[in-house]
Simulated scan of single mutants.
Amino acid sequence: MTSRPRIERTTVGIAPARAGRPAAEVESYALDTGKGPAITVWSYGATLVEVRVPDRMGRCANVCVRLTDLDSYLDRGRNPYVGASVGRYCRCVAGAEFTLDGVRHTLDRNEGEHHVHGGSEGLDRRVWSADASSDGDALEVRLSVTSPDGDQGYPGELTVGASYRIGPDGTLDIGYTARTTAPTIVGMTHHAFWNLAGEGTVDGHRLRLDATEAVRFDADLIPLPGAPEDVRGTARDFTTERSLDGVVVDNCFLASDGPVLAELSHPDSGRVMRVSTDQPAVGVYTGDWFAQRPRGGICLETGALPDAPNRPDYPSARLDPGDVYQHRTVHRFGCG
């Protein structure tokens, strides 16, 4: 890391024309406060490409899994949403359908009969507008994109903003906003794969979650009817810090009201990441089906509950004209 704050903008390539959208230049923004984490964000998918933080010896490494080049990010076969901003609706919508004000809406079916992570041409596949600036001791890159009415089947034109803000206190603050022209549903998430070792797998990491309940899923990862499961005393109990060695996790946990939702640590390097959010749930995935890098990182996807548009017992994902969708998740990095 440098001793003085810096913002560096470069071009990484051209995203080709696709789905009726023209080819577009993809920009990279490198932000470094000189004291806290240093990050790199690309305008393709509003994607977090690098987060460099020191270990207990002061040696820096990228703790956010990245792909090798723009072509890799453009290729869905090689890119399972790595570091991307996912929407309009993260996780699943069962049967790719939901009803709003008596009108049935059919979404893009991109996972069998279901809609997952915003569809085959979701916001992670778009080139966002971007700029970056300093704000006191903090640095921030802000991105925006407009999803037209009917995009992937969603009603209303949706204007989405994303922001990545770093401070010298070791924080990375990720935020989303959205506004709509018609009643719709919104549920963004951030899909980084975290690896505090900077290499290898998530084995060697430890995880604690301030969450006592998890969604019960069927074989297609669609929520089952009824209340969430109490995970205390089960294989999904992370209320006490546990090793991830050989542990497979792919579930959605209900967030508590505590100040820290998740704490991920890597004892060998000393790096620790604490996550807090204003969202009702966190999806935890140990990357076991990431074809290019199995178990290369762990996702902590804060956001709405899966299939909330079809579940009146879940917190609502509805957004109306005149209202503003807001989502904030803070990552605090340190050494233990």
Rank of each mutant, 00 (worst) to 15 (best):
Trp128His: 05
Glu157Cys: 09
Val141Ser: 10
Ser147Asp: 09
Gly136Ala: 10
Arg142Trp: 10
Glu157His: 05
Tyr154Ala: 08
Ala130Pro: 00
Trp128Asn: 02
Val160Cys: 09
Ala132Val: 02
Val127Cys: 04
Ser129Ile: 04
Tyr164Val: 01
Arg165Asn: 14
Gly136Met: 10
Asp137Ser: 12
Leu143Gln: 08
Asp137Phe: 01
Gly150Asp: 13
Val141Cys: 12
Thr146Asp: 14
Pro148Val: 07
Ser147Glu: 11
Val145Thr: 12
Trp128Arg: 00
Ser163Tyr: 11
Gly156Glu: 03
Asp149Pro: 02
Leu139Phe: 02
Ser147Tyr: 06
Val145Cys: 14
Tyr154Ser: 04
Ala162His: 03
Ser133Trp: 14
Arg142Glu: 14
Pro148Lys: 01
Ser163Asp: 12
Leu139Tyr: 02
Ala130Phe: 09
Asp149Val: 02
Ala138Cys: 14
Tyr164Ile: 00
Leu143Ser: 09
Ala138Lys: 00
Gly156Pro: 00
Ser147Ile: 03
Asp137Leu: 02
Ala130Ile: 06
Glu157Arg: 02
Arg165Phe: 12
Ala138Val: 06
Gly136Tyr: 13
Val160Ala: 12
Ser133Glu: 14
Ala162Leu: 13
Val141Pro: 11
Tyr164Gly: 00
Arg142Val: 10
Ser129Thr: 12
Ser163Thr: 10
Leu139Pro: 01
Gly153Ile: 11
Leu139Val: 03
Gln152Phe: 09
Asp149Glu: 04
Ser163Trp: 10
Ser144Gly: 14
Arg142Ser: 13
Ser133His: 14
Val127Pro: 01
Pro155Asn: 03
Trp128Cys: 04
Ala138Trp: 02
Asp135Arg: 01
Ala132Tyr: 05
Ser134Ile: 09
Arg126Ser: 15
Ser144Met: 15
Asp137Pro: 14
Gly156Ile: 01
Trp128Phe: 06
Asp151Ala: 07
Ala132Asn: 08
Asp131Pro: 00
Ala138Tyr: 03
Asp135Glu: 15
Tyr164Met: 00
Asp131Leu: 07
Thr159Gly: 11
Ala130Lys: 01
Leu143Thr: 08
